[in-house]
């Protein structure tokens, strides 16, 4: 895309973010330190990638979770919150536990989607080690298969308190 076309597109589209809604009424989760600034690391523990598409939308221009102070980062060392999606498979059990250990405290673990909450349609599968809450402490659960981006944003806002 040429520079001129891109400039015209930027001017034509302007703001594509959906209007901000009121701060969530549910109680805040996590330490007070995380108010207004939460770095998020996403861990796929064995997901079908349905939740990943929704998480992509959450941090995209329309839902724009970054306006509430949540930002995706590339390393668990930088993170305050982990977004865990999918059932925990045997192969991802160790990496998940190590990722949780590599996240400095105070940290928050968010289980996103029905699979992460209670194994969903994969319950009893031979490769399944369990739900996320079976292997580590979970602070927030987001139901849905896949959960709507608005629900994930609401969960993140309970941590950022914005």
């Amino acid at each position: 895309m040429s520079v001129l076309r891109l400039a015209r597109t930027i001017l034509r589209i302007g703001r594509m973010a959906a209007p901000a809604t009121d701060a969530p009424s549910e109680t805040a989760v996590g330490d007070q330190v995380l108010t207004g600034s939460v770095q998020v690391r996403h861990v796929d523990a064995g997901s079908c990638n349905g939740c990943e598409i929704e998480i992509g939308a959450v941090f995209g221009p329309v839902y724009d979770a970054e306006r509430y102070g949540a930002r995706l980062v590339a390393s668990p060392r930088h993170a305050d919150a982990l977004l865990v999606t999918g059932v925990v498979t045997h192969n991802m059990l160790q990496p998940l536990l190590r990722t949780v250990d590599a996240t400095p405290k105070p940290r928050v673990v968010i289980a996103v989607g029905d699979c992460a909450r209670d194994c969903g349609v994969f319950k009893g599968g031979y490769g399944v080690a369990g739900a996320v809450s079976d292997v580590t402490d979970v602070d927030i659960e987001v139901p849905g298969c896949p959960p709507a981006p608005d629900d994930i944003v609401a969960a993140l806002r309970r941590v950022t308190r914005r």
């Binding site: 703001r15 600034s37 970054e66 509430y68 102070g69």
Partner: peptide, 19 residues
């Protein structure tokens, strides 16, 4: 803003640092 987002505002890096 150029990506069509609203963005967290100019104070976000300061908040990140303080955290």
């Amino acid at each position: 803003r150029m990506e069509g987002r609203i963005g967290p505002g100019i104070w976000q890096p300061t908040r990140d640092l303080l955290k």
